[in-house]
Nucleic acid binder design. Structure first.
Lengths: 215, 215
DNA sequence: GTCTATAAGTAGATAGAC
DNA sequence: GTCTATCTACTTATAGAC
């Protein structure tokens, strides 16, 4: 036979651990693409960021081109974004909490999560333009699933007479988009003079709107 | 005297109207930067878009460099965005309308305005990163002024007992950010299966959250 | 897996004729 | 105000030595 090739030991002598540089490139791409945009980051910059010589072209031993890195990165991020999000739902779903503090806790956690991961979200959003086949998946698994999980909890609280009697899915859409828009606007246009006070007024207003209580 | 120079006739013989190509470049920059990002548009592309020969460098007779175009463009946009916005407020401020239909009209108009001008808003947001001195102005004159105008109207409706009694400025923040986030998410992650139904549920939920009555 | 070297293309920007 | 021509720098990507 012409191919008695040994079972391809991906870890050859003298190499680092299996796929280490590749993983580092994905991480570097996440940070750099998020900050400077896909077009704003050169392959040389990515190489330098992981300890390769800038301009050496060593990048191409790990990815066929820059787009391949973006795609690998997005597929990884879709997974990890889901994991991060389910965490935020725990506070809301905790049935032992009274409704007001459960809502407050959810809003604050979600707002923090959106702030911490906005650049990742922007990357997913912009990356979806490069890969139309991933766009529907991003929407369904990140946006739609989250809304339905939240709506489920709202529905229970409505039936218990604790929230205003409005379509729970629509309530979730309003709340999530308000939090998202708040984080996006803050990142894009800058923070207000007193961010802490603004945050408090914002989340408390949403709680009041859902509970339909005056001040 | 060494300078008897005539009063600089900006329109020389054989030239088009004063500043016409410059104005065209600003317009082309608005569309192209919005769609493809600042880095994604070459000077040659801008030249071609206004009828100049691509790569001729004629661009540089009108702007010192690409950033100068972005800056001129932003200053113009800050003005026109204000004008567009005041239009959306008319529907809300119309005291003859009953509260429910005034809110509905405002939400629908604002949502339409945000959809139509999201790319412009993104451009202002991203441009503000290039020009930190413009960032505070963008925030104050576009974001903050709009919120205060809306809050003024809400305050009247609250005093008339028609809206829930919650800090009107905070209500405006929730509503505007929900509309903004909705438009941003739609542009980034794609539309839902039935956009019309989704829109209706969304704006109606917001109305229900603001009115004192249940549905 | 990383390096040197380099090809081939594109970007921003300038000089000078018309 | 637009053109031709050109410069420099940078970017993607490949070939081949180690």
């Amino acid at each position: 036979m012409a191919k008695p090739a040994a079972p391809r030991p991906t870890t050859g002598p003298g190499s680092k651990e299996r796929g280490k540089t590749r993983a580092l490139l994905i991480e570097a791409g996440l940070h750099l693409f998020s900050r400077k945009g896909f077009d704003g980051v050169s392959v040389a910059e990515l190489e330098a960021a992981v300890g390769l010589k800038a301009g050496s072209g060593s990048f191409y031993r790990h990815f066929s081109d820059k787009e391949a890195l973006l795609k690998a990165l997005m597929e990884q991020e879709i997974e990890s974004a889901r994991a991060r999000r389910s965490h935020e739902l725990d506070a809301l779903a905790d049935a032992d909490r009274d409704t007001r503090s459960a809502l407050l806790a959810q809003f604050r956690l979600t707002l923090r999560g959106m702030r911490d991961n906005l650049e990742r979200a922007n990357l997913l959003s912009r990356g979806a333009e490069h890969f139309p086949e991933l766009k529907a998946e991003v929407r369904q698994r990140l946006v739609q699933d989250a809304l339905e999980s939240i709506a489920r909890v709202y529905r229970q609280r409505i039936q218990a007479g604790e929230l205003i009697d409005v379509d729970p899915q629509a309530l979730a859409v309003v709340v999530q988009n308000a939090l998202y828009g708040y984080a996006v606007a803050e990142a894009g246009f800058g923070s207000p003079a007193d961010p802490q006070a603004e945050d408090d007024a914002f989340v408390n207003a949403m709680v009041s709107m859902l509970l339909r209580e005056g001040r």
